[in-house]
Design a binder for these strands. Sequence first.
RNA 1: GGCCCGUUCGUCUAUCGGUUAGGACAUCAGGUUUUCAUCCUGGAAAGAGGGGUUCGAUUCCCCUACGGGCUACCA
Length: 510
Amino acid sequence: MDERKVRVRFAPSPTGPLHIGGVRTALYNYLFAKKHQGDFILRIEDTDQTRFVSGAEEYIIESLKWLGIEPNEGVGFGDGQFAPYKQSERKNSYRQYAEQLVASGNAYYAFDTSEDLEAMRERLKASNVDAKYDSITRSTMKNSLTLSEDEVKQRLENKEQFVIRLKVPRKEEVKLYDEIRGWVNVNTSSIDDKVLFKSDGMPTYHLANVVDDYLMNISHVIRGEEWLPSAPLHVLLYRYLGWESVMPKFAHLPLLLKPEGNGKLSKRDGDRLGFPVFPIEWKDPTTNEILSGYKQNGYLPEAVINLLAFLGWNPGTAQEIFSKEELIQAFSIERVSKHGAKFDVNKAKWFNQQYVRHVDNKILAAELKNNVTEKNISVDEIYVEKVCGLVKEKISFTKELWDYSQYFFVAPTSFDESVIKKRWNEKSAIVLNDIIESFQNSIEFSHSTIENAYNEALIKNEMQSKDFLQLFRVCLSGVASGPPIFEMAELFGKENTILRLETALKNIKQ
RNA sequence: GGCCCGUUCGUCUAUCGGUUAGGACAUCAGGUUUUCAUCCUGGAAAGAGGGGUUCGAUUCCCCUACGGGCUACCA
């Protein structure tokens, strides 16, 4: 690594909600920046005004905040010395560079209408030739290379619509070093004369991205593999603009693939895959369709970061659970894999489960309390916390809290039938009554005194615990599984526990 | 079609010429947990195919196959 200060950027376009592939790109940029004490920048690439989606920009900002991978510079995170960070607000800075390329003979004005272009493509297709605007075809089109100088001047003065295209050499090897893949060679014969400056006065991605990365002193471009084919074009741009010596290093990340079948994960995959593709919930502004998010599905941001980091990267050790700080320390571009990764729902669930267990009860309680109050149940905060402490071992997602713990707040009215059917016999009621009686006579009501009372009742009635314990659980909670029974009963309290057992007795007796 | 990238257990991956090809998730079988959804132990499970290079290839090179990406005045 050279001495240049590390400055990386995440540059999404606000055409909809950010999906997890994009989130991972942001994450790798973030980790790389922090690892090298560099800057992480958020730049909004909104050069296509026709694809603007309202709310998308805010969504991107909110998502990065939720995940805790906040840029230290950029839209929504405070301007640095390179503001503005939104390309539509930088509109005026691009044309001069396009003009510079025209002046140096590396670009040209083109006046072709979309009909002209269509006709050219039809014509070439008919003769079985690759239809592209390149070193051959440009000589047959309306541009500043074929038109006289006067006519070009005239057209420009008449404010005729034009674009500026890069004059790509006919046949030239372009070498590009990718930090993940090594050297990539591309011949310019396969690249067309890309539009750099559009007729609406905005640059295309190619120009804007190169100009901004240069102006913003970007040291490394870390982006998705879908950009690899156009990277040589960008190298050409740096070269012709005279910036090749400060050209950023490139790293093209492997894509995130759909778990089943083929293709890269896309925004359109929405909810149908059984896991969210968006960090937080997104409501489509035009259709009002709601697409679910990791946040709302009960994932913890730390878990999402951890699992995403491992989709395409690994530290080379057996450790898999990494805090954000640990990821920063361990991360390196060299250990990013070259091939696409399919998202694995099971592994994602496992990651989240690991984190849920270690979350402070207070934080879980805050979420569970919402569910409880939604049901118009008023409850003590400490009680909710204790409930969380007991059930968190049993769940994978925070949104499961209520499902797994509702009997702590509402006494059961139905009882797991398969357990009743399997375990209930003529002695059950007697044992239960003995337990109730013992409880009533007890002064202290802790999990150990509960357990003692329980055991005594079993011995007295010559009953094996393994034949009765689950039945006991069902009588108390209505369901077949849950946290340690005696601790659960302690939390219910003496009166409540007795009441529940009596209710169970009444309901179950056929 | 053209160009580019890739290819190790079902999935994520380790291996930087010599390993019984390792781990994790999932799965299966046991065992704890006096019950369970936790936990522990164990099993099954992989180098796409074909050529080279080499004393020796999963590892390096070539070809084929397959997968993916790109191929717009979209990013």
